[in-house]
Each structure stands twice: as C-alpha cells, then as structure tokens.
Write a protein that binds this DNA or RNA. Structure first.
Length: 580
RNA sequence: UCCCCGAUAGCUCAAUGGUAGAGCAACCGGCUGUUAACCGGUUUGUUGUAGGUUCGAGUCCUACUCGGGGAGCCA
C-alpha cells in the first residue's frame, strides 16, 4: 500500500559530493582532470590545457558555454538593409497574442510594435554565423550577467533551443540600463532586440548587440534557488520545477526528445502501425507484477461482500489496475495488422529503490506477426543502433556536455555500438562463460537461476565490452507467453543487456500453439479463462509472432551516462515520492 | 523490502564532548570586450525531528524522517 501524503521534503542535497581533494576551489588550467564518473560529477575541474566547452560546477547549474565553432574566427557577412529584412519576413514577424494585447495601448506600445516587426529567432539560430547582420528579436532566460564599466554589460541568454547560450551585449545607453539591466539576475526572462554581429572575442561565433531589452519577468537573486555554480542532482531533484533551466536537465530533455522522435521515425519508416493499448486494464500481463489499483470506491468505507471489498460495485464492476505492459493488446493488433508498436507510460507498484527503477516509466513495445526470435533480435539491434546514431548526429552539443561532465565515454560508447555487432549468445552459453571466468561472484552462477546484476555487468563490461543479447532462458524464470523450445526446458526469450545499465530490452517469440500455451498457463498457476481473448488469437488464424519492450528512461540513461533514472524523466515517481 | 553511508548557512562542505567556520551565492564598492570573469568588504544558523547520557552534545546513545550507494523485483 502506498502512502498518499508525506512531509515536505527538505530542500537540501546530499551525497554525490565530489571526493575530497578533487574539489578545487577555482579552476586552474593546469588542474589534472580526474575521470568523470557516471554517478559523481566533479567541481571546478577543467580538461587539461583546454578551454572548457562547458563550464559548470557539478556539471550543472547555469553556466556559460562555449561552442566549438565559437572558437573559429568568423568573417561577418555584409550587413543587409534592415528595412528590407523586416519587410521580407512580415509573415513570421507577426506579433503573438500577448504582444497584441500590449498593442492595445500603453507605454510599451512603440517598443512592442518595433519588436513585432522584426524577425523572432531562437538562440540556436542566433548563435549561427549565418545570422550575422540580421536584426532580430530573441527571448529567453538570463543565465548570467557580467558588467563592464567600459559602458556595457554582457548577458548570457538561453531559451532551450540548444545547449549553448547567446551572448547579448547591452550598452549602458539603454533607457533601462541603470534601472533594470544592471539588476538582471540569473533566471530573469527577457526580450531582446538587436543586431546579430560576429563576436570579436573568443567563446562564441556571434552575439547580439541590443538596442532594446525588455524585462519580462524578474527573478529575485536572493531567493532564486538556482545559482551560477554547480548543483548536485539530488538538490535539483527537490526543485524539479526549476531544474529544466539547468544545463544538465536541458540537455537531458533534448536527448530524450530526440530518442522519442527516432522511435517513431524508425518504426514508421518500416511500416509499423502506432497503436494505443489501454492505460486502465483488468488483466495482469506479466502475471507477477505489482500493480496500482484504479478505483473510485471510498477507501475509508468500501462496500463489502462476505468480508471482502466488493469490486462489483466499483466503477468498472471489477478490479482494475494501471497497465504494466501493453504487450497482450499489441499482440491482438499484430495478429491482425502485421507490424505494430506501442509507446506510452507504464506503471509498476513494486517497492524498488534503485537508480534504474521508476513506478511510472515509458516503454516502447513493438510486436510483429511472422517474426521469430532471430527476426526479433535483428530488429532490436537495428532499432537501438538507429536511436544512438540519431542522438550522435542531432544532439552533438548536448552529448559533448555529457562527455565533459557526466560520463566521459558516453559518445565513444555509442559510436562503438553503432559500428559493431551485438554479441548474441544463449543463456546456457552465458552461464558457461560465467562459471569458467574464474571471477569470484557474490552470488554463484547456476543453470536455472536468473542472472544477477553482477553477472550481467561482467558480460557487458568485462567479457564482451559491448551490448549482449542473451536468449533461450530456462522456462522456469520467464513468463508464460514465451514460446517453448523443443528441449522443453527453455523458452525463446531474449534480453538486451548494455554496460552500466543492464537490461534495456526484454522480449521473446510468443507461444502461438494453443495447447502448449494453455498447459504453460496451468503450469504457472494462471487461469486460462481469464485470458480467453488472448487464447482466441491462437484458436483462430494463429501465427508465429514476436516482440519486445524497451525502457525509454533506461535508454536515455545509457545514452547520456546519467547515473540515476530519476534524472532522465521530468517528474520521477518512486516509492514515497510523487512531488510536482 | 534488506545491507551500508549520510543529514551543519541559499548551495557545497569543515569543526578532539568545551565560544559553529570556509568557499561559492547574495548585498556594497573597485576593475575589466567580459565569458564559471576578477579584487576588497558585509550579511547569512532552532547543526533533519523527537527523546536520552553528560557539568556541558553538531559531536555519544535510541527511535523516526529524508537522501545516497549496493541488492532484490524488472524495463
């Protein structure tokens, strides 16, 4: 049973602290850079003899960032006449609703109208050399401000469109320079209009010379929790409403988005149909998972019948739960439409307290008719490679950050995987390797028992040093729906294991033979009656089919190198915590 | 759920059972085409909660809460 309430959490982070001695007070270019670890990020350390691409204490916070291309000198393009620019972009420069409201009158009318007439572009666009010469409007949040008594201030602006910030040069001649610009704190939101120019200094290719800066929303520096310095992930978790504004969580959000897009791209390009199984279900797919109950009965005074709660009087007239998997429903559609996939949230009420488990997580479940286990493994491998390849291409800047601050092998690992073949071996072969490894495991390896984390890690991290697909597991440790092999001891199951994380994919060829499936259900103490519709798929026009489930968060965790799964989902749900 | 570790300023951390500190942030000033800017100064505490031991507890003991690492369950 889960508590619904709990005391407010302390706004304090602990642990994940840098090791003593590795925590330099200030960066020194000559500092030795210790290895970056997945679960421990370090303070104030720079790559030796290198200008940092990313600056940030714990690999996080609100620091400035220098793009690689920013280090190249740029030739400014010939500035074009401003009027012509504006006119040519009329359609895109239309004011938004909020701006129209301003236009209704008031002191800001003139400025707003001018902003509305120019091109509104993202920080990502403004940072590119092609933007030089344009007169633009950029809007975002201030990451930091540096004042120069030489007559201007520098603002670092971020709007989430990319990892890097846009440098804004704010001249002291601005009407609100003394009153507002000099007090712009971290986190304030602003609208800036000005001209994009090639930056004369190192650190960025372009910068915007502001001719107007509008304070949209201030952020009191005395109380705003995010600082320019690094924060631990534990602390940021306590301010989940603000952590997307930090370097790390912005990068995670973009990588997560990229992975989701690639999931759809991959399946759509291969002719898969995206289907939507129910979130509320009356069946328990795995048979063993702990499920969240869905009920509208009064928990303080539920109707009873012969002592037990009478769910016949509940909303659905029977006990219902949040889904733990859409697989069974996906099989229904695969056995009608061929190749399908689901992609949505799933829920497990297990009391798991680890860096790899969530009570609410997202899962991708493809299901394919006329696929056997080998087809299934081929698909899983191609699928993962596609996800990794797309992230490397589309999130290069974010990935570079993870390499610098979170997991130094993040990119090289992905590159290696994209190019090599996954190792495939049977459970039996894996047990053999482990037993002959000579390694003293905490838990002994024996045929017929599930592999422990340490065993999986040995295979992926020590022995093969790459993703491993294990298949043909003992039937005693796998679900009833997996196809029985002729040996009558193993089933056509497969797990894809990756270094650091372990299982990212679990799948199988499904049992398509009615009699075998029925006897397997009875063997495992399940009532075939409850699965009558599932059995019908075998009764009428049965086909061999297969599928698997991919954990989205574990994939994002693996890709980014983030140590804790709670930091790759916006609002983690775990035992004892459903904040925000 | 089990094992281990932890909780001190807004953040990250110090402090033999004997007057609670530093760095960063914030604030004030100086300097600077700056870029985790830099330099000087100022401010910051019910030491997680509740009990207990003691002349005296941040420090020792007990319980609880929360966090981290590992394990199990799994994706």
């Amino acid at each position: 049973m889960y508590r619904l309430h709990r005391p407010a959490r302390r706004l304090r982070g602990q642990a994940l602290r840098p090791r003593r001695g590795q925590q330099g007070p200030l960066p020194d270019p000559a500092d030795h850079r210790p290895p970056v670890q997945a679960r421990r990020v370090l303070d104030g350390v720079r790559p030796q003899g290198q200008r940092p691409l990313v600056q940030g204490g714990d690999g996080d916070g609100l620091h400035l960032q220098h793009s690689r291309d920013g280090l190249q000198p740029r030739q400014p393009e010939e500035p074009r006449p401003r009027l012509r620019r504006s006119r040519g972009r009329e359609g895109q420069g239309r004011p938004h609703r909020g701006e129209e409201d301003h236009l209704a009158g008031g002191p800001q009318e003139v400025r707003v109208r001018r902003e509305a007439a120019m091109e509104k572009i993202s920080v990502a666009q403004a940072r590119k050399a092609e933007a030089v010469g344009k007169h633009v409007l950029v809007q975002g949040w201030v990451r930091t401000r540096r004042d120069s008594k030489g007559g201007f201030s520098f603002l670092e602006l971020n709007d989430g469109s990319c990892f890097g910030n846009l440098q804004v040069v704010a001249p002291s001649g601005l009407p609100n320079y003394q009153s507002e610009v000099l007090h712009l704190g971290v986190g304030a939101s602003v609208s800036v209009s000005g001209e994009v120019k090639a930056s004369p200094a190192k650190g960025q290719a372009t910068e915007v010379h502001a001719d107007s800066i509008t304070l949209v929303g201030s952020a009191d520096p005395a109380t705003y929790p995010l600082q320019k310095k690094g924060h631990t992930f534990e602390f940021l978790r306590t301010i989940a409403h603000l952590r997307p504004r930090s370097n790390t969580f912005g990068a995670v959000a973009r990588v997560r988005n990229c992975v989701c897009r690639s999931i759809h791209d991959f399946f759509q390009e291969q002719g898969f149909l995206y289907i939507h199984p129910p979130i509320i279900t009356a069946s328990d797919c795995e048979g063993a998972s702990q499920m969240f109950r869905v009920s509208t009965l009064d928990p303080n005074n539920p109707p009873r019948k012969e002592g037990a709660v009478d769910y016949a009087q509940d909303f659905f007239h029977k006990p219902t739960f949040l889904t733990v998997s859409g697989q069974l429903e996906a099989e229904i559609f695969a056995c009608a439409l061929g190749k399908v996939y689901t992609f949505g949230p799933t829920f497990r009420a297990e009391n798991s307290n680890t860096s790899r488990h969530l009570a609410e997580f997202w899962m991708v479940e493809p299901e394919m008719a006329f696929f056997d286990l080998n087809d299934n493994m081929d698909l899983a491998e191609a699928f993962l490679k596609r996800l990794f390849k797309d992230v490397l291409e589309r999130c290069a800047e974010d990935m570079q950050f993870f390499v610098e601050r979170v997991e130094k092998t993040a990119v090289s690992t992905l590159e290696g995987i994209v190019q090599s073949r996954f190792m495939r071996l049977s459970y039996t072969e894996a047990v053999d390797i482990l037993q002959k490894s000579g390694v003293q495991f905490e838990f002994p390896v024996s045929w017929g028992t599930d592999l422990q984390s340490e065993h999986e890690r040995y295979l992926t991290e020590q022995h093969f040093k790459k993703p491993v697909i294990l298949y043909d597991y003992p039937k005693t440790i796998k679900a009833f729906y997996m196809r029985l092999n002729d040996d009558n001891r193993t089933v056509r199951a497969m797990d894809v294991l990756v270094p650091r994380i372990g299982e990212v994919i679990g799948g199988s060829q499904r049992e398509e033979r009615l009699e075998v499936l029925e006897s397997r259900m009875k063997e495992m103490g399940l009532d075939p009656q409850a699965y009558w519709w599932y059995l019908d798929l075998r009764r009428y026009g049965t086909v061999p089919h297969a599928g698997f489930g991919l954990g989205l968060e574990r994939t994002v965790q693996f890709v980014t190198g983030m140590g804790n799964i709670r930091d790759v989902i916006p609002f983690p749900r775990v035992p004892g915590s459903a904040e925000f």
